[in-house]
């Protein structure tokens, strides 16, 4: 649980973001001491750049995605930022629709986003505009589908190999 001093510090951050561009903050969510700033998809990279250069959020701790299928917009992208000098954490979130899952890449802002975004692309199927090397990373390059989506069954789509069943019946 974050203490009240930390809460004040993050609300100052949110006010600064609002002062810079009122449209960049469409919603602020406070839950269990974590601050989430909801950013429109178009403004995500600019906001991230502002956070890094002006608000000292120099460390990208994590980037991840959530699929809320069948709710639209179904995808949520979360960037967990840490300010090492200020000892603060903040989360930037943007919502992406299933029909056009593309977002601006964060690699120009934090090079460390490279593999984290490749993982999201691989497993969730969200494309990142301006990513220098957007390939599958964990799954084989010829894999079909994106397994972390909610409409992808946990057991996968593939059946028992057909070559196996007749041989089994013969015995």
């Amino acid at each position: 649980m974050a203490d009240s001093g930390e809460q004040n510090a993050t609300s100052v951050i949110v006010e600064k973001l609002r002062g810079w561009n009122a449209q960049a903050v469409s919603e602020v969510i406070e839950f269990h001491g974590e601050t989430t700033v909801l950013v429109p998809r178009e403004l995500l990279r600019e906001t991230a750049e502002y956070c890094r250069s002006q608000l000292e959020f120099n460390f990208l701790s994590d980037a991840t995605s959530v699929d809320r299928f069948p709710i639209e917009p179904r995808f949520e992208l979360n960037y967990h930022l840490v300010s090492i000098p200020k000892r603060l954490k903040i989360r930037l979130r943007t919502r992406v629709s299933g029909s056009d899952p593309t977002v601006d890449s964060m690699v120009p802002v934090w090079p460390g986003a490279g593999w984290l975004e490749r993982e999201i692309f691989d497993l969730m199927g969200i494309r990142f505009e301006g990513h220098p090397d957007l390939r599958r990373i964990l799954l084989p390059a010829d894999w079909e589908g994106h397994p972390l989506r909610r409409d992808y069954p946990t057991e996968g789509f593939r059946d028992v190999p057909s070559t196996y069943i007749p041989a089994f019946k013969k015995q």
Binding site: F31, E34, T36, S61, D62, T64, N78, K89
Partner: peptide, 22 residues
């Protein structure tokens, strides 16, 4: 419903867990 991110120091660095509940 909500989400939580926790990071600890594993022997290799920052080990984080992000859980979303519906």
């Amino acid at each position: 419903p909500g989400d939580a991110y926790v990071a600890i120091e594993s022997p290799r660095g920052e080990l984080g867990c992000y859980i979303v509940s519906d």
